[in-house]
Design a protein around this nucleic acid. Structure first.
Length: 881
RNA sequence: GGGCAAUUAACUCAGCUGGUAGAGUGCUUCCUUGACGUGGAAGAAGUCAGGGGUUCGAGUCCCUUAUUGCCCACCA
């Protein structure tokens, strides 16, 4: 009866159905509920351009585990989902798509382009959401948000204007990173640095009205077209006499000054630096200090512009070659050295970025960074693992102003308007009616959009309705945990931290739970170019979502990268199958749906497994609280497979098959009770299979997703039962061991002759009679007082408190048996020696905890007794000849 | 140049506040026992990278060396 489970575990049969059930019943929905404590995680919004990859699978599995766990613990658990418009990434895709139909952005214009982009969003933006459902993500989809939707856009406007009014947003001509392919500015965080080998060109600049030269060294000779000075260290004896004089800039034939600046390192290169304020961040600063002109020599596609003389029109690298060649011809190229240096690249298209001065919008970071730094130092925000707080702090302590304008169309358009008449800048939520300065009425909005991270920085509160003062915001903010990979601490975590503090006056989350990345089995980063990526959807199709989740959640420690192995996936799938079949067994042997208390009488095995279960509940819960999700999962795995399946189910069988009703009921009860708890504990990790199994259990009601997380109960801990079972299991293992060594097949039953050395062990062994029969192929047990009548062909097993003989007819090879006993003897002697070492150490006796000393003494006695028994046995066999 | 990880069984990795080294996979032998062969039983396999130190006791704490990987940094 009661067994609706098919014989083999096939996740495809039920995962989608289970997810639909959860959705229909609205279990993921969270609401403001004053009777419950809130628990909230905001999902790092995936890009609408994205497909679910294995990194999401890890990130989401962790979040789903936490949310499901807290939901079961009785919290009002909100996992707030949504997607990111991903300004630059999406725009690149849309441009590519236009290109396929032979169109360009410029041709179709802003409005038409945005239509295409929104179409893209409608078409592909939901794709990743559907994929997340396959994983089992229990997000409150009714609250799904999008960074470009109405509320989020209101939040962006509000923030921009407030920061502007506070003077924390400004427009200025500063050096920024320019991507010549995406044709937009980038923030510092959006530039990847890669060490590349290149050249160091030494170039001679002639001093005007002199025969002297100053030799400078550069890695980017083409930038000399925009040089406006050469700098030396004020104390440099080599150049001191030249400070204030001018140089003739070769190729351009422009006079530039020789200036002194402490920035210059006398020891590096030639000690003289060409200064190109428009194309280098350091030079830019020097340029400001010395009031040097900035000459931008490049167009937005990194070709040389009209300021570059004869090089105008050339690509930057072509120009580099030509410049070098021309210098060589003029005899001004002193030498070329190999030099490796780090080159900045666009994080979207990998093009080498060009530093260039440009009129952009910036966020002034200093005053915003301060509270964000304090929040972590004062542990209002706690990183898990702790070490990542260093990365966060280091970045914030060295932060530069944030360039937030992008020369793109897809995104939040900057709410700045320029008066057509007087160019006055007005920052406002909507187009102004009249210019306060000149009373002009025509305005043009700034063409640029905001950095995509500007809106994601507001995610923890914009998703909850801010700037409206919603109930949700009051209830769920600050959120509890943010789960994300270490690679976006700078992009996102930092910015959410200061935004939350600035606008909500409170940290956005208490914990930042950082995980590593999933690598391929050789330890390489997964990438499109290597083609070594793993598609989680294919994995789910083959192994099921539960197996994928379990694989990602186990076997690595906090914050570290992990390798992805198919073997591990198989092992997770096998684990699910194991649980599946254990349930089949339990249900197959269950013939009631309710238990009567007077029918239950727990034996030692029942007490043991219940005791172990309670320890598991305690430990797993503690692990979860410390975010040690992998450890918790590992403990569940071990308990389910080794203790519950391999031992307890086997121990329960004799009673299930026996005549005694009370015994049968008790075994059924314990099996069911433990299984129910196992399923609950495992549910956050493997939600589908646990829900499916739960649904077939006649003893439970409702759905497991909303069941109560098991509570540790100290009254269920039985150290007596645990100790007894240790002895029983050790006897069983020993018997199996010697039988295996002697090649005795299990079907061959054997008698077990027991001589006990104390009453307690006799009681234990007697009570465990059935266990030996079934688990160790024992036919009967015979108790003897003395050794006289022991058959000569028996092998001997020595355990604590007893000597056990297994007569094996002619199968015993006495030579082998002696060898075995010798080994046993050596083992015990080694133990005793180690114990003696400890106990004869005065320091140990004095300083070690007394319980430990006591335990050690007990062990000594035990081993000594066992050794004596072994020695006796050896002697008796040898005497026999 | 700084910072952070990692180094444990053949492979991939656990090992929390220091108390006699664990798992999965693989390997060897056996088992068609009434949940499961996606299984069961038994077994072999580790100077916990090297060297110091603290401690009664160190894989675990401290110092140091080596190797590998990652992050940050304006030395042109």
């Amino acid at each position: 009866m009661n067994n609706n489970l098919p014989k083999t575990y096939n996740p495809l049969d039920f995962e989608d159905r289970i997810y639909e059930k959860w959705m229909e019943k609205g279990y993921f929905k969270a609401k403001v509920n004053p009777n419950k404590k809130p628990y909230c995680i905001v999902l790092p919004p995936p890009n609408i351009t994205g497909q679910l990859h294995i990194g999401h699978a890890l990130d989401h599995s962790l979040q789903d585990v936490l949310i499901r766990w807290k939901r079961m613990q009785g919290y009002e658990a909100l996992w707030q989902p949504g997607t990111d418009h991903a300004s630059i990434a999406t725009e690149v895709k849309v441009v590519e798509k236009l290109k396929e139909s032979g169109l360009t952005k410029k041709e179709i214009g802003r409005e038409e382009f945005l239509k295409h982009a929104w179409n893209w969003k409608e078409k592909y933006g939901g794709r990743i959401v559907e994929q997340m459902k396959k994983l089992g993500d229990s997000c409150d989809w009714s609250r799904e948000r999008f960074t470009l939707d109405e509320t989020c856009s209101q939040a962006v406007l509000e923030v921009f204007i407030k920061l502007y009014e506070k003077g924390l947003i400004y427009r200025g001509n500063r050096i920024i990173n320019w991507c010549p392919v995406c044709k937009t500015s980038l923030s510092d965080a959006e530039v990847d640095h890669e060490e590349k080998s290149g050249n160091f060109w030494h170039i001679k600049y002639p001093v005007v009205d002199s025969h002297e030269f100053i030799e400078i060294a550069t890695t980017r000779p083409e930038t000399m077209l925009g040089d406006t000075a050469v700098a030396v260290h004020p104390e440099d004896e080599r150049y001191k006499h030249l400070i204030g004089k001018t140089l003739m800039l070769p190729l351009m034939n422009r006079e530039i000054p020789i200036i002194a600046d402490e920035y210059v390192d006398k020891e590096f290169g030639t000690g003289a630096v060409k200064i190109t304020p428009a194309h280098d961040p350091n030079d830019f600063e020097i340029g400001l200090r010395h009031d040097l002109p900035q000459i931008v020599v490049m167009n937005d596609d990194a070709t040389i512009n009209e300021k570059g003389g004869k090089y105008s029109g050339m690509d930057r690298y072509q120009a580099r070659k030509q410049v070098v060649k021309d210098l060589e011809e003029l005899g001004l190229l002193a030498k070329v050295k190999d030099h490796s240096h780090s080159v900045g690249q666009c994080y979207r298209c990998n093009t080498v970025v060009e530093p260039v001065t440009s009129l952009q919008w910036f966020v002034k970071m200093e005053s915003l960074a301060k509270p964000a730094i304090d929040a972590v130092k004062e542990r209002k925000i706690k990183f898990v693992p702790e070490r990542y707080s260093k990365i966060y702090l280091h970045w914030l302590e060295n932060i530069q102003d944030w360039c937030i304008s992008r020369q793109l169309w897809w995104g939040h358009r900057i709410p700045a308007y320029y008066c057509e008449d007087c160019q006055e800048v007005i920052v406002s939520k909507s187009k102004p009616q009249i210019c306060g300065k000149c009373k002009g009425k025509e305005f043009k909005q700034d063409e640029d959009v905001l950095d995509t991270w500007f809106s994601s920085a507001l995610w923890p509160f914009s998703t909850l309705g801010w700037p409206q003062e919603t109930e949700e915001l009051k209830y769920f903010y600050p959120t509890n945990v943010l789960v994300t990979g270490y690679e976006i601490i700078f992009f996102w975590v930092v910015r959410m931290a200061f935004s939350g503090l600035e606008f909500m006056d409170e940290v956005p989350f208490e914990h930042v739970f950082i995980h590593g990345i999933v690598r391929d089995q050789e330890g390489r980063k997964m990438s499109k170019s290597l083609g070594n990526g793993v598609d989680p959807l294919e994995i789910i199709d083959e192994y099921g979502a539960d197996a994928l989740r379990f694989t990602l959640l186990t076997g690595n420690s906090l914050g570290n990268d992990m390798r992805f192995h198919i073997e591990k996936l198989e092992s997770s799938r096998n684990f699910a199958n194991k649980l599946w079949n254990a349930t089949r067994f339990v249900l197959m042997n269950l013939d009631v749906d309710k238990f009567n208390n007077d029918e239950i009488s727990l034996n030692v095995a029942d007490k043991w497994i219940i005791s172990k279960l309670n320890r598991l509940i305690k430990e797993a819960t503690e692990n979860m609280e410390k975010f040690e999700i992998g450890l918790a999962a590992q403990k569940l795995y071990d308990f389910i497979w080794s203790e519950y399946c391999d031992w307890y189910i086997e121990l329960a069988k004799p009673r299930l098959y026996g005549e005694n009703l009370q015994n049968r009921r008790t075994a059924q009860y314990t099996l069911t009770h433990v299984l129910e708890n196992i399923l609950k504990l495992l549910h956050p990790f493997m939600p589908f299979i646990t829900e499916e199994i739960w649904g077939t259990m006649p003893t439970v009601k409702g759905d497991i997703i909303v069941s109560e997380w098991p509570q540790y109960n100290e009254a269920n801990i039985s150290t007596d039962a645990e100790e007894e079972m240790t002895i029983i299991m050790s006897i069983i293992k020993n018997i199996r061991n010697v039988r295996a060594e002697m090649n005795v097949v299990p079907s061959k039953k054997a008698k077990m002759i027991v001589i006990t050395t104390n009453d307690n062990s006799k009681r234990i062994i007697e009570a465990a009679k059935q266990f030996f029969t079934t688990l160790a192929s024992v036919s009967e047990i015979q108790y003897l007082e003395g050794k006289e009548t022991i058959p000569s062909d028996a092998i001997s097993i020595v355990v604590e408190g007893a000597e056990i003989f297994i007569p094996l007819d002619d199968l015993v090879d006495f030579k082998k048996e002696i060898e075995r006993l010798q080994k046993e003897k050596e083992k015990l002697e080694a133990e005793i020696k180690r114990g003696e070492g400890r106990l004869s150490n005065e320091g140990f006796l004095k300083k070690a905890p007394p319980e430990l000393v006591e335990e050690e003494k007990k062990k000594q006695d035990k081993y000594q007794q066992m050794l004596n028994t072994v020695l006796e046995r050896l002697e008796s066999i040898e005497n026999r000849g």
